[in-house]
Design a protein around this nucleic acid. Structure first.
Length: 211
DNA sequence: GAAACGATTTGCT
DNA sequence: GCAAATCGTTTCT
């Protein structure tokens, strides 16, 4: 179990994404400490990736994506949910890895309590199954946006597991094709056989798409 | 200044 | 299986 350094996070986003599989993310907040082992992630490129929040350039919301790797990018989705990303690449590059699902390995009690606070109770295996549920389990909200995972005194820390031997890949969820021809980058990565991996839902066809 | 929309989840039919 | 929930950000007038 090792702690990544800035250079590790500055590598190409796909390599970092793969490296994050099996890694553990720990948040230490006022209401408890929770550790999640990541089982499913999605890579997002910078300005050249139409599916990325950074596709249309730097804005107030996505500014942290353009910062140095190792920072946390958190955004609110549909006014209801939070999604957690790890910023990758060097400063100026806007790539990031979306954390889609994981397995709670420490702090089940705290994670369950946070879940209850959101009104729905779930089995342990489902506590961090899905991007928004993962955020709930870790207690991540907009306040953690910009937090540095390499800051030992920070609220969120990252530790790497053994490199994964095998990772499955597929199209990203919620992002229709790239390149217009239905060419899809297989930038969703997960650990095969993990029950905590979220169910795949095909991206809704964008208007103008044919059948 | 106003309107549309979204890297999802949940609940109801 | 389908549609609602809900609000900050971005884009258009």
């Amino acid at each position: 179990m090792t702690v990544p350094d800035r250079a590790w996070l500055a590598r190409p986003v796909l390599e970092v994404a793969r490296g994050l599989l099996g890694a553990q993310l720990t948040t230490s907040l006022a209401d408890g400490v929770v550790t999640v082992r990541l089982t499913e992630v999605e890579a997002y490129g910078g300005s050249e990736d139409p599916g990325s929040h950074a596709a249309r350039g730097r804005t107030a919301r996505n500014a942290v994506m353009f910062d140095r790797g190792g920072l946390l990018y958190v955004y609110r989705h549909l006014g209801l949910h939070h999604c957690v990303n790890v910023v990758t690449g060097a400063e100026g590059s806007a790539s990031a890895v979306l954390l889609r699902a994981g397995e709670v390995v420490h702090g089940h009690g705290t994670a369950r309590a946070r879940r209850r606070r959101h009104g729905v109770s779930r089995a342990d295996v489902d506590l961090a199954r899905g991007p928004a549920r993962l955020a709930v389990a870790l207690g991540v909200d907009l306040g953690l946006g910009g937090a540095d995972l390499l800051d030992e005194a920070g609220p969120a820390r990252l530790t790497l597991g053994a490199p994964v031997e095998e990772a499955s890949t597929g199209p990203r969820v919620g992002v229709a094709g790239m390149g217009g021809d239905g060419a899809v980058f297989p930038w969703r990565l997960w650990l095969p056989g993990e029950p905590t991996v979220s169910a795949y839902r095909p991206a809704p066809q964008r208007r103008g798409g044919r059948s």
